[in-house]
């Protein structure tokens, strides 16, 4: 079994692409953890992968969905996403999904990695326009919230450091934290932008029902 360290911050597409590249080379996903992916050797291009954002599904809904998928020959792996289990992330994600997350089991299973034997046909989970739209909206909304929260944090943050006497230290800390927040926001922005772009594209495409 091959253990690979890989962390994808907020880009679902990159993760999917990476898994499919591995699959093309002949590696099948066996297990996932927060920081690692475990593979086993298989035939090249034997499997294909697709990633779904299931943050809006409760634990029992997730179980149902995964059982349904198994019946269709689709095996699935849960995976955490971004900050996963940190408390501020938990609250924000649940609010963006429109529900207060009370079932602790769904922390760290915001993403579902779907695996199917490659039968030459494209692997589409959503074939109806409204399903595709709601998927990308979910992704977009999940990130807009933390971006706004972080920006607010950035603006109000300075007052919290006033108890430190050393003005220079306060300034460095302040700008350091600001910079860090901006760095974190950039991948989030990219993901939101990508999702908005997809949403626009789907809306314009009148050939799909």
């Amino acid at each position: 079994m091959i253990k690979t360290f890989k962390v994808f911050f907020s880009d679902l597409d990159k993760q999917e692409k990476w898994l499919n590249e591995k699959a093309q080379q002949g590696f099948k996903l066996i297990k996932t953890s927060k920081l690692f992916y475990y593979f086993e050797k298989c035939e090249p291009s034997e499997y294909i992968y697709k990633i779904e954002f299931i943050i809006d599904k409760s634990m029992s809904e997730q179980k149902n969905y995964r059982a349904f998928l198994e019946d269709l020959g689709i095996h699935s792996f849960t995976k955490n996403f971004g900050f996963g289990n940190y408390s501020y992330g938990r609250i924000q994600f649940s609010m963006s999904a429109g529900r207060i997350r009370t079932s602790p089991g769904t922390i760290n299973s915001e993403i579902l990695i779907l695996e199917k034997k490659n039968d030459g046909k494209p692997f589409e989970i959503f074939t109806e326009r409204k399903d595709k739209l709601s998927h990308y909206r979910k992704v977009r909304n999940a990130f807009i919230f933390p971006i706004i929260a972080l920006l607010i944090l950035m603006i109000v943050g300075k007052t919290k450091l006033d108890f430190i006497d050393n003005q220079q230290l306060v300034n460095t800390l302040y700008y350091g934290i600001k910079g860090l927040i901006l760095c974190v926001c950039i991948p989030f922005f990219i993901t939101v932008f990508k999702a908005c772009f997809r949403i626009g594209k789907i809306k314009k495409d009148t050939t799909v029902e």
């Binding site: 349904f68 998928l69 019946d71 269709l72 779907l114 589409e124 989970i125 074939t127 109806e128 399903d131």
Partner: peptide, 22 residues
């Protein structure tokens, strides 16, 4: 689930294919 998917694909001769999520 699987039977329903097959039914639709067969009766529409592959014209209507539903994704698992849909």
């Amino acid at each position: 689930g699987y039977g329903i998917m097959q039914f639709i694909e067969k009766e529409t001769e592959g014209r209507l294919v539903l994704g698992a999520g849909t």
